[in-house]
Design a protein around this nucleic acid. Sequence first.
DNA 1: AATGAATGAGAGTTCATTCAT
DNA 2: TATGAATGAACTCTCATTCAT
Lengths: 205, 205, 205, 205
Amino acid sequence: MHKAGAEKYTRQRQAAIRAAAAVFAEKGFHGACTKDIAERMGIKQGSLYYYFKSKQEALSEVCLFGIQDYVQHMEDISGSEQSFEAKLAATVTSHLSSYRERNEALKVYNDERLYLPEAKRSRLKELGSHYRQQLEEIFEDGKKSGAVRESMDCHFAAQAVIGMCNAWGDLIVRDPELDLFRVIHKCTDLLINGFIQQTNTTNRN
Amino acid sequence: MHKAGAEKYTRQRQAAIRAAAAVFAEKGFHGACTKDIAERMGIKQGSLYYYFKSKQEALSEVCLFGIQDYVQHMEDISGSEQSFEAKLAATVTSHLSSYRERNEALKVYNDERLYLPEAKRSRLKELGSHYRQQLEEIFEDGKKSGAVRESMDCHFAAQAVIGMCNAWGDLIVRDPELDLFRVIHKCTDLLINGFIQQTNTTNRN
Amino acid sequence: MHKAGAEKYTRQRQAAIRAAAAVFAEKGFHGACTKDIAERMGIKQGSLYYYFKSKQEALSEVCLFGIQDYVQHMEDISGSEQSFEAKLAATVTSHLSSYRERNEALKVYNDERLYLPEAKRSRLKELGSHYRQQLEEIFEDGKKSGAVRESMDCHFAAQAVIGMCNAWGDLIVRDPELDLFRVIHKCTDLLINGFIQQTNTTNRN
Amino acid sequence: MHKAGAEKYTRQRQAAIRAAAAVFAEKGFHGACTKDIAERMGIKQGSLYYYFKSKQEALSEVCLFGIQDYVQHMEDISGSEQSFEAKLAATVTSHLSSYRERNEALKVYNDERLYLPEAKRSRLKELGSHYRQQLEEIFEDGKKSGAVRESMDCHFAAQAVIGMCNAWGDLIVRDPELDLFRVIHKCTDLLINGFIQQTNTTNRN
DNA sequence: AATGAATGAGAGTTCATTCAT
DNA sequence: TATGAATGAACTCTCATTCAT
């Protein structure tokens, strides 16, 4: 039986994806070279092609790997029975945690996916759009339940959350010292409450 | 007199910077090639080197061009006598407007400046840090005047504003149909008031 | 074992050095192009970079190869117990023979080494200076033993021998028909006895 | 009348030749660029083409300039009524002095003339060959008069003198501190008397 | 007499990719 | 499963040369 062999292959392929993620994150897709990736895995350049049939496939795999969990989490959050605020908190937590766990892959997804050919990009786009739509629905529900202001544009809101999370995600990847949980907490707080001191106010706007 | 000649040079060089900005924004620094830049200007590849002594110098000039106004505006805003909310609104307006005016250069500054050699990067870093510090001060002042919540971390807040603006900036550059003023308004509103319906509340958190 | 592989690499690298020597000798460092070198080896231009990391490294290797033996021979001659005349003859023989064996590499060392960056050039300079010093010592010893005229400036003498040998070396490289041994003999004779008819002397030849 | 203009042109063209000589001597023909030459003259690159119709013409002119006097001198020496020794001394003097006066042009003639196209090179070759032949005749005459050893190969001898002079010429150009007259004297002495102590002879130069 | 601007050809170098072993 | 060797295309950059002004 080839089970052991197959397992090793799978393991090595995962290693290749992580290596590619790291290198792409650091130098960008075009700035990176296959030799760098191979070296990070401890193999030679040519051997990389045992795991990827092209550099582009490597990018594609990294991107997929980068959003997999994060998309899955949203599925869970979206299906759960929680208050708006809890769902938003869960979203931010999931999103920012991904940057730490999945390491650089999520960053690569954000910054480099546009270098994929349309064909491959559309699959990712679907996943991304789906994510955003679910987030939008959370806002819609929030409105219905009265937790979110009527005036809020839910499409805008979803983009804003994603944008803010990605911006902080970049900083998280770049600076491993950063305290993840404090960032999560502060982001959530900002998004929910805004900057200003709320005083018995009827919100203009 | 050679004034006309010098003027032509300056004009062409500006054109080169804009062309480079557009190409770098679209393909990234390493993904772009000098031929693309030259062609966009209507000259031949080799002629580009009459205006830049290297591709890297082109990047450097684009980055500088990208933040010039935006840093200058912050100087004005920071020195002005306005309420916290007005200053924040002005900042968001300036930042997002830059993305339209300065076109792709600002995006390039954000995404590609890390490919510059340390020496050139540090000059940009200074400018960027200065910007962030001034924004932090606006938050500090906001706290003192009671407009901003005591609990707010001003460093975090400044990063968050910049991050949010850059995230939307990306979308603005990518989608020229986007209504700039609505985005500005919504971002400002979100940052100030947060998502939730404020009800005669004493803010927990 | 990878011994065979390593051997092949070494062999090919030697071939690359010889090819580079030939091309540099014919066209000069700047006049030569890497394509010529590759073609002479029967490989394609890009493949050359598997053996050299730059054109300059090729030059550097050629120069080193060019003087290696010749410097080694001088070591032997200098350490031997022979008359002045025998040592001088051995020097001329070694020097001129090198031009035939090492082919064009020695010519390249003479004419093109100045295009190397200071760092690499200094290593060669050392070797060259050492050679000249040993030759000077041969003259000093010749004086002591009475074989060389008291009035002779040993530094000048060494330079003169080297200069004369290099001048003939050029001709030897350029004209493969030239009878090496006759040139060696005549050079030695000229250097030892000069042009003029020596009266009352036991000059054979 | 345009006399003044014509004069200026001639003067500038001479300056161009000298500038080209200097740059070619330093960097070699292929290593030099027309911008360097122009800058050394204090004009702009394009303006150089007012004086030369190509870089190659510049080389050609430099080479011609480099050997003109030196060939002329040999004409004089060859036609004069002097002893062999005096003629040889005059030859060495003329040759080595040329290196100082004509500066780098002679070196360029020696090292770079092979980059000229056959057509132009043959004119120079003629001059060079003529020079060598006249030198050979001096040796032939020397033999007849008994001043030169019967065993001497006159063709070899002429080559050797030229080779030695060029080798020292290189050093003279490279090191402006070098005492020209001492070098001339020593070279002549070496060529005439050789290295060895001549017994029972009154020769001491 | 000189220049600024542009060009086009060619150079060195990098790198994704292939393939026999 | 992995590698060494090679390839060819693409890219950055240089430079002799031209020409209108």
